[in-house]
Structures are given as C-alpha cells and as structure tokens.
Amino acid sequence: MKLPHFDYQAPASLDEAVALLVAGDGGARPLAGGQSFVPIMAFRLAEPSMLVDLRKIPGLDQIEIGDEGVRIGAMVRWRDLLDDARLASALPLLPAAIDHVAHYQIRNRGTVGGSLAHADPAAEMPTIALTCDAVIDVIGSKGKRSIPAADLFTGPLMTSLDSDEIITSVLLPAWPASRRWGFQEFSRRRGDFALAGIAVFYDEDASGVVANAHIGAISVGDTPLRLSKAEAALNGRKIDEATLAEVAAVASGEVDPNGDIHASARYRKALVGTLLSRALSAAANRKA
C-alpha cells in the first residue's frame, strides 16, 4: 500500500499555494494534516499530480475568540482545540465533539480545515460546522469568499470548493453562556467512525421553554445533516420525557441512512432518536 507518485510543494504563502493549484489544473490537491487523505492515497483511491502542503503558510494555526464567535484557522489541529481551555466556555460543544475524533496520534496532526474540505459525513467537524451555522472562509484564484456551512457540503466527500480553493478559517458564531447543548456519538470502538452521532444546542427562557434549537446528525446521510423537523418539534417545548420521546421519533423519521457492514439502516435510523434523546437529556440536566 505504497503511495502513488505525486509532486510535492510546500509554498510559503496562500497566493503561491493557489497559483500551484491553478497550475495543477484540477490534479493538484492541498495537503493539510493528511490524516484522511494519505490513507486514501495509500489505497490508491486518489492519485493527485501534486500535493500542495500548507504547513509553511503563516497565520492558519490561530484560534481567535471574540465578539463574533470562535474563528479557527484551517491548520489548527484537533489537539490544539482540546488543549485550549477557553473553548470550554466559548464553545463547549466543540471540544465535546472533537474528543471523539480518531485517536491521540491522529489528533496531533489532523486539522480543522482538512476535515471540512474532506467533507466526510461520518466525521465530527463538518456536522459541528453545520449545526453551529458556521461560515467557512476560503481563498482561490477568484479571490476570497465566505461559504455558509450549509452550502459547503454537497455529497459524500464532496464540497462546493473549486479545485483551486483553499479553506483558510472557519467562524463558529458566538455562543451565549446560558446556552444548553449535548453531544452524543456511538461508534463500534473508541475512535472509529460514528454509526451515528448527534450535536444539539438550544436556548431557553426562564421557564425552560426551548428556542433556537439546532440539531445536527453525523453519519446518517451523504452529507452532515441538520434535522429541521426535530428542531421544529423541539422549539417551544420544555424538556421532559414526552418531549424527548416525541423529538426522538421525529428525528428518527427524518433521516434515511444507508446500511453497511457495520450496522443496518434500520438500526442507524433508530440510533439517531436514541442519541438525540440522550443528548437533550444531558443538555437539560447539565448544571449551568
């Protein structure tokens, strides 16, 4: 399982990187952490003409927390997120989800930008971006643009990025301190891709009535999913047993996952409801 032949460049600026991608005419690929893409090459499922390594480009490894939210540079590694104590209050859903990403060694090299560009529906970061209404900043030969997460993911391992575009950062909007959240993922073993996962957050009024429900689902569709029907069912309700059961049923009903060698479609569908119920339960019961 040796890698196929490719050329390699590690430019020092985004402009150079974009120029290399343009020159590669669709055959060149940006390389971030490589933790998903190198295995794909090892199986010879991808044979790029050139890898454009982003590791020398300055300014892509920052985590900035401000009024607009949390801005994460594309080359920020999972490990950097887990080490950043500020996120526990600034965006607690994020480290809770990233804790499920692969294993220790992978988390030392895998990056936020790489994961978003890889667009694996079974991965955590794309679903978190979608759930949080994140905006992804990219640069390419036509200049810079900002892509809402909802418009980035177009299919399994497919995005709306042009072949010469590079993700530079992702902005996850500001998170009120009182916001309630839950993250549940179930995989066959620690670090495996999820059979299903749920990210959820909502705001509530003084009486505990839910508003602004955001529910994202991992690994039950061709892309990361927002469960809009379940969100609608949750808004305006208080979290109690009846709500949990009803919202779980709605969530189960609105996904149509495939079966594979690890789990049947029927199981995955039900698991979405189970995990959502558990995530909401955790959200409601977490001490503020």
Binding site: P39, F43, R188, R189, R190
Partner: peptide, 28 residues
C-alpha cells in the same frame, strides 16, 4: 462482538482495512 469478514452477494470482500476489521482496542 466485532471481527467479521463480510462478503457481498457477488463475492467481494467488503472488509479491506483495519478500520473495517474491528479487533479489540485498549479501551474496549
């Protein structure tokens, strides 16, 4: 619990990596 060499009806081995052939891990 987890190790299985699954074949498709056409006789294709569906398990081609250690991400699919699930041996026990330290956390299990």
């Amino acid at each position: 619990f987890s190790e299985e060499l699954v074949y498709s009806d056409e006789g294709q081995l569906m398990v081609g990596s250690l991400a699919d052939y699930l041996v026990p891990l330290a956390s299990d």
